[in-house]
């Protein structure tokens, strides 16, 4: 009884320890487990909800050659001024957000020729630059175990399609003699339920 009383008397010390130790170790682990962009595929997803850790772990089960890590971030993460946002390899965003970021995405002309069965987003010049991954009419999409695309009706926003884009400044998009790991990863990603 005395032990419990003493613990409750100093509850703030125990809470402070729990907070500080997890923040510090989180920082250490981020530092330890991170790797260079050459060995990492970074993806930003703007959806209603996102299981980023679970999706990263699932995608890491089948890594393309030379890749050690997949980092999946919510768009909220980019609000903290991450410079990595521009250098990201893949972006998954809703149709209404595309115009704001269109200049950061690469053209998918060659990819579209190889995969005519997919539905694309075309820019003003008629060039395909995004792959549709969620159809708001049929409510079907990829990786729906990890991503919630459908916004609850109570929020009063119209349902939207979602598209997958590849960053112009990414490290694995096949441009400038780079590897095409982002496209290999996208195939895995698009196969997820």
């Amino acid at each position: 009884m005395r032990v419990i009383r003493n613990i409750f008397k100093r509850w703030h010390v125990y809470i402070t320890w729990a907070l500080l130790s997890t923040i510090f170790m989180g920082w250490i682990f981020t530092f330890l487990t991170d790797t260079t962009p050459a060995h990492k595929i970074t993806m930003y997803i703007h959806a209603y909800t996102l299981e980023d850790q679970a999706l990263s772990m699932k995608l890491e089960e089948a890594l393309p050659e030379g890749i050690r890590m997949v980092k999946v971030h919510s768009f909220d993460y980019a609000l903290f001024g991450q410079t990595g946002f521009v250098d990201a390899d893949m972006f998954l965003i809703s149709a209404s957000e595309i115009e704001s970021y269109l200049t950061d995405f690469m053209s998918l002309e060659e990819f579209a020729e190889k995969h005519p069965e997919l539905t694309y987003y075309y820019d003003e010049g008629g060039v395909p630059c995004g792959i549709r991954v969620y159809d708001s009419e049929t409510e079907e999409g990829i990786a729906m175990t990890y991503i919630t695309y459908k916004i609850p009706e109570a929020l009063g926003r119209a349902p939207e399609d979602y598209y997958l884009f590849f960053g112009k400044e990414g490290f694995h998009n096949g441009l400038d003699d780079q590897d095409e790991a982002a496209f290999e990863m996208a195939e895995n990603f698009m196969g997820l339920e």
Partner: peptide
């Protein structure tokens, strides 16, 4: 091993372990 699981393992050891040390030290 998986870095994420290792991180959770560290939290599971460090937080209660630290609490025990704090209790012994202070009380």
């Amino acid at each position: 091993y998986n870095g994420q699981q290792m991180e959770y393992t560290v939290y599971a050891i460090l937080v209660p372990g630290g609490w025990v040390c704090i209790y012994i030290w202070l009380d």
